[in-house]
């Protein structure tokens, strides 16, 4: 069932954030359409290693769309052409033989390039560290069923909590805004009674940090939602804004 593909890859290579980068062209032949996109790059890397060349740096870990480590901009779309799908889950069936594929890193000021296609996304972690949690010490929790959470609330919270922290939203946004990411966390916790006590401080602290990290403002262009592998809805951004407004009072 798998078909061999011939492809021209134009891959961004950059030795480090201080040095300039550029595209390098690679011709690939006989690539099985059953491979995933990253396995195709693995294959290319094995070929490069065999020639004694420096393999292409890119990130991945789980390779099943949940850890958020992977992320490439493929033909101008973060995570590539399949909607609701991470780069690691994209399979070569999505491409036709003879096609030219551009591969670039997630670009944003908040995501400096480490090498080639690897970028530093620690800014997202630092944003969470400012308040993307419930402050509960181990041992202090009440019995689990002591607080009711309606099914609807739980579902809403889950929809937002599904974010894998990949940063595709930032990469795709014309303003490199991280509001889908921040909005997802704020919505997740604001939807649950457990998140209420810190509602105001959380949203403010996370917003201040996101600004500090150099992410842009959201102008509601919704590109983030289109590339988000977990299909997080932009309504979380509206929710975030609402929470921010309420926090002034």
């Amino acid at each position: 069932m798998s078909v061999p593909l011939s492809l021209t890859l134009k891959i961004w290579r950059q030795p480090s954030s201080e040095q300039p980068g550029g595209f390098v062209t690679y011709e690939m032949k006989g690539i099985s359409s059953a491979l995933s996109f990253l396995e195709m790059l693995d294959t290319l890397n094995e070929q490069l290693l065999a020639k004694g060349e420096d393999p292409i740096a890119f990130e991945s870990d789980c390779r099943e769309g949940i850890c958020g480590a992977c992320g490439l901009v493929i033909n101008g779309v973060a995570h590539g052409p399949w909607p609701g799908c991470t780069t690691c889950q994209l399979h070569m069936r999505a491409f036709r033989s003879g096609e030219t594929i551009f591969v670039e890193p997630f670009r944003a000021r908040g995501f400096p390039v480490v090498k080639d296609l690897v970028v530093d996304r620690s800014a997202l972690d630092r944003t969470v560290q400012q308040g993307g949690y419930v402050s509960v010490n181990t041992g202090s929790a009440p019995p689990a069923n002591a607080v009711c959470v309606s099914k609807q609330q739980a579902e809403q919270a889950f929809d937002a909590a599904a974010c894998i922290g990949c940063g595709a939203c930032v990469a795709a946004c014309k303003n490199a805004s991280a509001m889908l990411f921040v909005g997802a966390k704020v919505t997740h916790l604001a939807s649950l009674p457990q998140g209420h006590p810190e509602r105001k401080t959380r949203v403010r602290a996370m917003l201040v940090q996101a600004d500090k990290e150099g992410f842009g403002a959201c102008t509601n262009t919704r590109e983030c939602q289109a590339v988000c592998p977990k299909r997080i809805d932009v309504s979380v951004i509206a929710r975030l804004n609402g929470e921010a407004l309420k926090s002034i009072k």
Binding site: K10, V73, F111, G216
Partner: peptide, 22 residues
């Protein structure tokens, strides 16, 4: 916002939903 985009622009950009107006 322009600054937040960073120095290097994408060589390819295929907008999925973002409208011209926005």
């Amino acid at each position: 916002n322009r600054k937040a985009r960073g120095g290097q622009a994408y060589a390819r950009r295929a907008w999925q939903t973002t409208s011209l107006a926005s």
